[in-house]
Amino acid sequence: MLEKIWWKKSPDVEEKTLSFRVDEVRQKIVPSHVAIIMDGNGRWAKQRNLPRVMGHREGMNTVRKITRFANRLGIRVLTLYAFSTENWKRPRFEVDFLMKLPVEFLSTYLPELIEENVRVEMIGDFSALPSHTQKAIKNAMDATATNDGLVLNFAMNYGSRLELVDVVKAIGEMTKNGEIRPEDIDEALIESKLMTSHLPEPDLLIRTSGEIRLSNFMLWQLAYAEFNFTDVYWPDFDEECLLSAVEDFQARCRRFGGVNEGIGALNK
Score class of each variant (00 low, 15 high):
8 K>T: 05
8 K>N: 01
14 E>A: 15
15 E>Y: 07
18 L>R: 13
22 V>G: 10
27 Q>V: 13
27 Q>T: 15
32 S>W: 05
35 A>L: 00
41 N>F: 02
41 N>Y: 01
44 W>Q: 04
47 Q>L: 13
48 R>P: 12
58 E>R: 10
63 V>N: 00
69 F>D: 00
73 L>Y: 06
76 R>E: 15
76 R>M: 08
77 V>D: 01
78 L>S: 09
84 S>R: 09
89 K>Q: 15
94 E>R: 13
96 D>N: 15
101 L>G: 05
101 L>K: 05
105 F>S: 05
106 L>W: 00
107 S>N: 15
107 S>E: 15
111 P>S: 02
112 E>M: 07
117 N>Q: 07
118 V>Y: 02
119 R>I: 13
120 V>E: 00
125 D>W: 06
126 F>V: 07
128 A>E: 14
130 P>R: 04
131 S>H: 14
133 T>E: 06
148 D>G: 14
151 V>A: 04
156 M>H: 05
157 N>E: 07
158 Y>P: 11
162 L>A: 14
164 L>K: 01
169 K>W: 03
171 I>E: 00
184 D>N: 03
184 D>E: 02
185 I>P: 01
189 L>F: 06
190 I>F: 11
192 S>F: 05
193 K>F: 09
195 M>L: 04
198 H>Y: 09
202 P>K: 07
205 L>T: 03
206 I>A: 10
208 T>A: 02
210 G>I: 06
211 E>S: 11
214 L>K: 00
214 L>D: 00
222 L>P: 04
229 F>H: 01
237 F>D: 02
245 A>K: 10
246 V>I: 12
250 Q>D: 12
251 A>Q: 09
252 R>Q: 09
253 C>Y: 14
254 R>S: 02
260 N>L: 13
261 E>M: 13
261 E>N: 10
266 L>W: 08
